[in-house]
Write a protein that binds this DNA or RNA. Structure first.
Lengths: 230, 230
DNA sequence: CCCTTGACATGAACACTGTTCTTGTTTACG
DNA sequence: CGTAAACAAGAACAGTGTTCATGTCAAGGG
């Protein structure tokens, strides 16, 4: 029967969620590299091998967490964008603040998705789609800030002719009709945002400043300004 | 006697170097998280516990590799800077290319220093000094490009008054007498360079472009231009 | 010169890890 | 009702970092 099937499937889905939740808590406390499948099992009062009925390997569990994290940070960015007004600069700054805030609240999840990849781990296709969420938000701001057909300002060096072809796929999807430089702006903005939060969370500004929040805000503002949403 | 002491100390130093070398090879092949102390011992035909005479823990061995990597990438940057001419734009581009090239040649070392920190690992003071090498090279280019006392151009929003105090320590050391915005430029440039290479090596531009080399070159050029060395 | 001290190497052991396999047990379906 | 599949349990394997007791050897002092 379909009802019994769904019953079994439902308890299975429930337990799968519980496993992911336990893994998330474990990740939050011990970090990505130290995430132990056995510790997750202990937390659930299960035997380690039982987890293999739900996830074929530790990497599969990690993948679930990665997708979750990508979607969470993407949601944080989208929410912040939605709550801010129509001004591109405000939207950009709001997104930067939100993304950085999420990273501070979930440093281990951040390291999991934006840190060094686990050796031998090959990102499945599920993750790359989830990873695009933040990019889409940023590209959306730029797409609104740069009307279609706008010529490139002289502030930036002209992109080489091949640039459009090089980044063709994402340009067509996210920034149709915009000048080829626009893709570079989005890449610069995204790279600057993710890069700066990463380097901060990974401790690379340690001792360089007494109030990184201020440096971050100024730099993101400047970056947005230069890239065209200022 | 001093001679005998140095003899023993010398063989000890030699063996220490051999251990680090073996660890470096091991790192290059298996990655940072998979670096196994026992595998290093096997490579040297030693018993694992013997390594503890030379390094108190696996983390200490990692620290040695981290310092080595920082110095290597810093050397690559400094060499490229030295080989290029006096034009700040050329120097900046040369450094970017060199740093990215080093990262491509040593992806695991890159992940070790710029990737997610090992959980529980606390960076000793040795590493932070070595980590500054690249920063110094970049700051040197900016210091030469921006004569002391130059007012900030209107291209960037003015830095808040507190900015100078916030980043005071490194400003005084690396960019004396430059406008407070100069520090932000260096931070932006360094962040953009390290961030972009990191995100590339960690696979975050996968599928976004067919020729990342070109995107990188263009973006670094634009970044340098905007930050004042163009 | 002997003899003690300390550095070194060894191998066994401990507490872990991810993963697999075998053995029941329960649950759904023809 | 009986069968086949899903599940849980526990033991086992190979691997990890680290510690400890034991043996071995060179250096230095009395």
């Amino acid at each position: 029967m379909a009802a019994t099937q769904t019953a079994r499937a439902r308890v299975r889905a429930e337990l799968t969620n519980e496993i992911v939740s336990a893994a998330r808590e474990e990740l939050a406390s011990t970090g990505a590299a130290g995430l132990s499948l056995r510790a997750v099992a202990r937390r659930l009062e299960m035997v380690p091998s039982a987890l293999y009925r739900y996830f074929p390997s530790r990497d599969a569990l990690l993948t679930a967490l990665i997708v979750e994290a990508y979607e969470a940070v993407g949601m944080a960015a989208a929410d912040a964008d939605g709550r801010s007004g129509r001004n591109p600069a405000d939207r950009w700054n709001a997104v930067c603040t939100a993304v950085r805030g999420w990273g501070h609240d979930h440093p281990n999840e951040w390291a999991l998705v934006y840190g060094s990849p686990v050796p031998g781990y090959q990102a499945p296709q599920d993750t790359v789609e989830a990873a695009l969420k933040v990019t889409r938000v940023i590209a959306g701001i730029f797409a609104d800030a740069i009307p279609s057909g706008t010529p490139a300002p002289g502030r930036l060096p002209a992109a080489p002719d091949t640039m459009a072809a090089v980044v063709g796929p994402i340009e067509a999807e996210l920034l149709p009709g915009r000048p080829p430089e626009a893709v570079a702006w989005v890449v610069m903005a995204w790279t600057g945002l993710i890069g700066m939060v990463s380097l901060e969370l990974f401790g690379h500004y340690e001792g360089a400043t007494t109030d990184f929040q201020q440096v971050f805000a100024y730099n993101m503002g400047a970056l947005g300004h230069l890239a065209g949403v200022g």
